[in-house]
Amino acid sequence: MAIALEIKGLRKVYDNGFEALKGIDLEVKEGDFYALLGPNGAGKSTTIGIVSSLVKKTAGEVRIFGHSIDNELAAAKREIGLVPQEFNFSSFESVWDIVVNQAGYYGLNRKVAGERAEKYLKKLGLWDKRKVASRMLSGGMKRRLMIARALVHEPRLLILDEPTAGVDIELRRSMWEFLTEINRSGTTIILTTHYLEEAESLCRHIAIIDAGVIVENTTMKALLKQLQKETFILDVRDGIKTDISIPGFETRMVDEHTLELVLNKGTSLNEVFVALNGSGIEVSSMRNKANRLEELFVALLNAK
């Protein structure tokens, strides 16, 4: 399988002396769905900026599908579709013009550009808005417009920098579905996000970057295996009036109908149910707390 993105010893020192990247290495295989996580100022956007040639690197190598950005920049650029964090289109142009012009910048004639624009605007639910000036779109529509624009030349590597920032839950879910579909059709995707649930739901590989250094680079499965503790939420049928304690387990009453239970990995849940049953408490449902990755993320950064 080809390597979509290969980064070796990448460094970036800005003009003000700030060292944003301290020699990172990264490899993303073709077809992967890859998450790049890190706190604000960790170096995620700088990395993406260098890969997409908007930021100049200080040292190191970057190859996109084998094309070095040092001596095959045009070929490397052709492989990438970029969805940046900030809106970066003309507010006076129509949705249609923005997408068709972007295709033109990649050398696609207007007939092909029009067909592609129609395809992606329809897929992203923007077809009815094609004649509207971009400034009239809602925040979610603007995000989708940037995705359509990034896909119009059909890149093999799609890079999304915080694509669902400020997007409501419903739209976020539909964007996840769309990105999953694009990935299944063969497009490699690299995603930076603050929503760890997003990375956990979508991505197969993950790199965590902090202060310009990669602190973790592994599969999502392997990373989640590192979790020593798991948190479950139990919904209790009849309200619990007093605090409950189960020997050997950490418990916390969220409210009188909800009990949060933390247990070490591998511990049997039977003891919990026996104890609850003995106290006359009936559990109506149980679910895993969604922020597993968040716990790990904090633990990793703290451990550094």
Binding site: S52, S53, L73, N101, Y106, G107
Partner: peptide
């Protein structure tokens, strides 16, 4: 184009 950052549309392209 610089002010509204859509110069990036051109800068990321292979032209």
């Amino acid at each position: 184009a610089k002010f509204q950052h859509f110069v990036e549309e051109i800068l990321v392209s292979p032209m």
